[in-house]
């Protein structure tokens, strides 16, 4: 898979897509991307979990916009970002959910991770307690989330390893292996390993299975009812209570 790339179509269509330079690791060439652009992207819901201030939002910001903000405010407002990745002949559109701060008082709604296909569980390598919190999230996901969910455990703030590491890499890695998780240490600040985390997740997602279960109509097909009886309310508010004299019967 090439590094994440915003296809020209997507970048053009979205007025508020930041005009970030493509990550340097990108190997996308024009031919490949136009062929890929013809494909319907496969939507993958990815959620972030982890203690407050471990760097969840910073990792997403690095992944989506390739930028980093020192002293980032606690997350308010940033809750829903998308990023496309190319994997062989498929395009994956990550729909990335951030906690919107509900995590702060242990009040995250299960709806948040209920139907996620992927989760990035983050801890801060300079804070031992944050790994315990990460482990409890992994447990919760394994109990309540989609059984096929791909979980990555990420030790963030790797740039601080030399000065203030509190969690040995071996310890977290051994736990991840035992629990069946992808594992990486990364730094949202320097960008180290951030792309790789998402790439590895994309590779591990059972895409064929996902497509099969969604049927040909796709999870959010065209306006109206999909093949599986699903309806897309985003298509528009539709005929509300008809104005007087315009009953639809």
């Amino acid at each position: 898979m090439s590094a994440p790339s915003q296809t020209p179509a997507a970048a053009g269509a979205a007025s508020n897509t930041p005009s970030s330079t493509a990550p340097s690791a990108s190997t996308t060439n024009a031919d490949a991307s136009s062929a890929a652009a013809a494909l319907k992207p496969i939507q993958v819901k990815l959620v972030l979990l982890g203690e407050a201030a471990v760097g969840k939002s910073s990792l997403v910001l690095r992944f989506v916009n390739n930028e980093f903000q020192e002293n980032k405010e606690p997350t308010i407002g940033a809750a829903f970002l998308t990023q496309k990745c190319k994997l062989d002949d498929k395009i994956i559109k990550f729909e990335i959910w951030d906690t919107a701060g509900q995590e702060r008082f242990h009040s995250l709604a299960p709806m948040y991770y209920r139907n996620a296909q992927a989760a990035v569980v983050v801890y801060d390598i300079t804070k031992a307690a944050s790994l315990d919190k990460a482990k409890s999230w992994v447990k919760e996901l394994q109990r309540q989330a989609n059984p096929n969910i791909v979980i990555a455990l990420v030790g963030n703030k790797l740039d601080l390893a030399a000065t203030s590491r509190a969690v040995p890499a071996e310890e977290a890695s051994a736990y991840a292996t035992e629990a069946g998780l992808l594992f990486a240490e990364a730094s949202a600040k320097t960008g180290d390993n951030v792309m790789d985390v998402f790439t590895e997740i994309a590779k591990k997602i059972p895409l064929e299975q996902l497509l099969a279960s969604r049927g040909r109509a796709g999870a959010s097909g065209a306006s109206g009812a999909g093949a599986a009886g699903r309806v897309d309310l985003n298509a528009g508010p539709g005929g509300r209570n008809a104005p007087q004299g315009q009953c639809g019967c």
């Binding site: 709806m111 309806v231 985003n234 508010p237 539709g238 209570n241």
Partner: peptide, 24 residues
């Protein structure tokens, strides 16, 4: 499907977080 509740769901963009299915 065409009621006020659906209208509120749509205009608040809460439809983004949920998936709906018809009652048969």
């Amino acid at each position: 499907a065409s009621g006020e509740f659906t209208n509120i769901l749509y205009h608040t963009d809460v439809t983004r977080y949920l998936e709906f299915r018809q009652i048969a």
